[in-house]
Amino acid sequence: MNVRDGLTKPIQNHNSHNKPKGLLASLSERLTKTRASIVGQVQSLVRRHPTFDSEFLDELEAILLQADVGVNTTGQLLSGLSQSLKESGQGKALSGEEVLARLKGEIVTHLGPPEPLAEAAEGPTVIMVVGVNGTGKTTTVGKLCYRFGKLGDQVILGATDTFRAAAIDQLEIWGKRAGARVIRHEEGADPAAVAYDACQAAKARGADYVILDTAGRLHTHVNLMRELEKIKRVVEREIPGAPHEVLLVLDSTSGQNGLSQATTFKEAVEVTGIVLTKLDGTAKGGVVLAIRDSLGIPVKLIGIGEGIEDLRDFNPREFADAIFHDPDRSGCPD
């Protein structure tokens, strides 16, 4: 089954350099464990509900809610499911497995088709990385940089997080790992000025990518959101058509507040895509469904580990599968 494929790939591609010894082993073991229980999980869910009934519906609701899909979107998904079952007139005739497949289909439809990262037709592609504190912006920037560098592209990193203590150093370390040049100012400098310099440097060197690592900010801090708007204005002025991507880094452990984050960041800097991080834990990140529904922002990338290669394209189908597979949470009311 494709879940298995999706989870095996990272192991094969996994690259252990730059990481303390033993991480590879533990990650691999973890994924094996997950994979084993996935199979059992689906079987037990379906075995308990050979046919579609209201109890099964309750159980599906519980799973969706626990995946942080949220009350509204869960309601929409389930009423969509009921509607389609009623219309086809085969509700009772369908097996649990088939109903589950339909629900996953609903989810995939909600998420829309996978969307690749935008690229500039000419000149450097500028990517702004934004988000609240602690979601993994700097790490994501490092991984993105490695990803482009591996394809032979030249990347300039802009250390526009001039606020958090040692954020610039953290970016320097990632830059070194990925072999990219970091444009930096002093801590506390104007981030828009750093963005300006990064754009200039990219133009002068003919770089392919500029990635701006912005400071984490709670979306409720209005002045910090204004600062972000300023960075974007500077970039727009310096490179026509830029920024080509404004990526909101969203922690998959975050709950319904994710919607509030996306709303405010979209208002400020027109977010073009979401990077869903920390999906290697037990969190599902279901709030992206609500975000896609109400704001139309697609998920573009996912973070599945702290290794430099642990950034992948978002695959709606795998995401839908993962919602219903969990070793730690059975999803059944106890």
Partner: peptide, 30 residues
């Protein structure tokens, strides 16, 4: 801002380390 996963996180840490308490951060958001 943590969602449903908070219970998994808290119980994993508590099982292994026997926590004595919790500090909730980023409450200045919404």
């Amino acid at each position: 801002m943590t969602g449903q996963d908070a219970v998994n996180v808290a119980s994993s840490f508590d099982e292994r380390l026997e926590l004595s308490g919790v500090i909730l951060t980023k409450l200045d958001g919404d």
